[in-house]
Simulated assay, not measured.
Amino acid sequence: MPDWQMLNGADHAALRLSRSADGTRHFAQIVADEFLPAMLHYPILFTKHPETGAFYAGVVMGLEPGRNLMTVDGRLPDYRPADLERQGFFIAEGQVVIDREHAVFAAGEGQPLFEPTGEAAPALKRVQQALHVLDQGIAATDAIIRRFLDHRLIEPIDVSMQFDDGRQLRLDGLYTISLDALHALPDAAALALFRGGDLQLAYAQTGSVRHLRTLGRIHNDRIATAAL
């Protein structure tokens, strides 16, 4: 059961924040403001919330649940999605709340949340910024996705891979922007997407799909290393 606690310097002065939980995340939600930095490192794809069926955007970091292929020596590339940065932290009634049982706190090591003076340390400031990015960005991103859907631009993507040891892997439930549908839009619709900034995000998403090959190569290399 989660142990929800209101974050405060008095009760959590000694609490430290570990990034070790990153290694178990194979997918992380992102918002529109994250597309451009995220596209440099990760494939950006759409999927559906299992409860509501609503589309949301995210980055693929691994090909199997519980395994992040992008971590090197426990660290991710230059861009770390806000959804990872805020792991274990939530907003409730305008206040920052933590799940004291979350893995980011379980290690008892990492960066402190508070300075000796009681002020927020850099690790907590990054969490606060990540919470702000998500709080401000989710509704705007939902609106962008609705516009993509209105133009019938989102389609399923077939992600099937075969590795040197003969094993095959298929990722289901992922979607991408259809470039064919995008390029077939009437001029007025394309211009509206361009002026609204949506067109740039569509090309960022489709361009990022090439990183799936990188994930496949890393996965294949680790299979080969494990077989030695």
Rank of each mutant, 00 (worst) to 15 (best):
D198P: 00
N8I: 05
H49C: 14
G74R: 11
Q205I: 15
L182W: 14
H211S: 10
A226G: 09
G9P: 03
D73T: 08
H102Q: 12
G88V: 07
R25Y: 14
G196H: 04
E85L: 14
R100S: 14
G62S: 03
H12N: 02
I30Q: 03
Q29S: 12
G216I: 01
R217A: 15
G173M: 01
A227E: 09
D172G: 06
H132G: 00
D164K: 10
L15W: 03
A120H: 11
I223A: 06
L153R: 05
E115F: 06
T24P: 00
G197S: 04
D3E: 15
L40Q: 14
A143E: 08
G58A: 08
D99G: 08
D150Q: 09
D165V: 08
P156S: 01
L84A: 05
I177F: 06
R152W: 01
A130T: 06
V133P: 02
A121V: 04
L76K: 10
E93A: 15
K48G: 07
F105T: 04
A184W: 07
R86V: 12
L131N: 06
F89L: 11
Q200A: 15
Q87N: 15
H41N: 03
Q95G: 06
P116V: 03
G23W: 01
A107K: 10
A13Y: 01
E51D: 15
G196S: 04
P156D: 02
G207I: 12
R126G: 12
E109W: 00
H132Y: 07
A38L: 06
P81V: 04
H102F: 10
D164G: 13
L169C: 01
E85V: 15
Y175S: 04
H26R: 12
F89Y: 11
R167F: 13
Q29Y: 00
G118S: 01
R210Y: 12
D73F: 10
P81L: 12
E115T: 11
K125T: 08
A120P: 10
R167L: 11
V209T: 11
P37K: 06
D33P: 03
Q5W: 01
V59F: 06
